[in-house]
Design a protein around this nucleic acid. Structure first.
Lengths: 219, 219
DNA sequence: CTAAGATTAAAACATGCGTTTAAATCGAAC
DNA sequence: GTTCGATTTAAACGCATGTTTTAATCTTAG
């Protein structure tokens, strides 16, 4: 039984407290006390409170996106070809299975992710974007293949709808029913994607060029 | 030309700075300086920083929900009966038209609303819930009428998907294209609702009873 | 004009914050 | 066993915060 390192203890405590209280309200004194380490350890190992937050995100997003991509590859490798639902499931399901030790971890991290989207913090946004961009592009491509002829701009926007629904719902909902929520969301999203191929005539399609999106790379 | 009152000046400045920076980082000194009033005026008129935040939300949500309900009544009053798209539009569109003076206000408030959902602040959640509950129930009923036979639990959850997609997208997107986003979202949501009536067989429907939802009243 | 209440103003208070410093302690290599 | 770098510890620094207090200034009614 190897004791967790000081770094990991800090990351665990920080993730929990950032998720519960938010970045600014959660103090380093709380975090280090919960982790059972000295206050100065944060600056020794991470450099600053902000850098600690980035480290928390990186640890989780690495795992989340690895899991998503693996599941996507499995779906794409099937003999009969990937169904839209399979692709959506590969995106949605790993968000539930984030747990690392306790089962509550995944839910907590989703709350933290929701905070990250709400925050206008530029550094954090850039870091998350760069971790996400590649994965989002892969999924956009996979979905596009099951929906031939879909305008890329529209598809990107619709993926944002799904990300919003996923993040909001996962952060809001109680822990017990995440599995059934994911299943409902996959069905809802698949129907939404299939059933809204073209824009309505009244839509001002000239205004859509300036859209920012989770899918945009930072490069 | 009547000068805006001290209260209004504080509310305007607070809304802008809370949206831009978040609740905790935005200091009362910043807010009162931007409003051109004395620091102590906040405590004199509102009592505390937290109470100021609640006042900011109340002012906007009152207007937003009034506008939504009015638009819903118009849709329901039409001779040919309300289409699903009409109901969704009544819910989505007023979120864009929140502007109060500047056009940027609505967008800013959406960011603030996103923050509110991300925050676990109990008081704020309760206040928003109580303002929202009645409106959400009205819309759930209206949508249910256009989708006969839909399970109420499932519909509630699907409405959460739409709220998540709306909030996330409105907060993330640039100002120029909110109109076309709303139109795309209405189409996406209508297709999602129509196309996912029953759950899949694999769904564990016993787990869904514990669901928390924006639709739940606090009473 | 004056007195009373509502509002604004300036200053101070207490507290908690992120960060830094400097010494103590540990762990392995020679 | 000693030395040297890595790590941990305790204490302090400087500062910004929300809030309170006390006095000054308006507003308004008699």
């Amino acid at each position: 039984m190897t004791e967790p390192t000081t770094c990991d203890r800090i990351l665990d405590a920080a993730e929990a407290l950032f998720a519960e209280q938010g970045f600014h309200p959660a103090s380093l004194r709380q975090i280090t006390q919960a982790a059972g380490v000295n206050l100065a350890a944060v600056h020794y190992h991470f450099g600053s409170k902000q850098a600690l937050l980035l480290a928390v995100f990186r640890r989780r997003l690495d795992a989340l996106n690895r899991s998503r991509l693996q599941r996507l590859e499995e779906a794409l490798g099937k003999a009969e070809g990937a169904q839209l639902e399979d692709v959506l499931d590969a995106f949605v399901y790993p968000a539930l299975a984030l747990s690392r030790g306790s089962d509550a971890d995944g839910h907590r991290f989703m709350q933290l992710l929701m905070r990250a989207f709400a925050d206008r913090d530029e550094d954090l946004h850039a870091a998350i974007s760069s971790e996400y961009a590649f994965v989002m592009r892969r999924f956009a491509d996979a979905i596009a293949q099951t929906l031939p002829g879909r305008e890329p701009d529209l598809l990107r926007r619709q993926l944002d709808f799904i990300v919003g629904a996923l993040t909001y719902t996962m952060a809001e909902s109680s822990l017990a029913d995440t599995r059934s929520i994911a299943s409902d969301l996959v069905r809802f999203a698949a129907a939404g994607l299939r059933g809204s191929g073209q824009r309505t005539a009244s839509t001002d399609s000239a205004a859509q060029t300036g859209a920012r999106s989770t899918l945009e790379t930072s490069s």
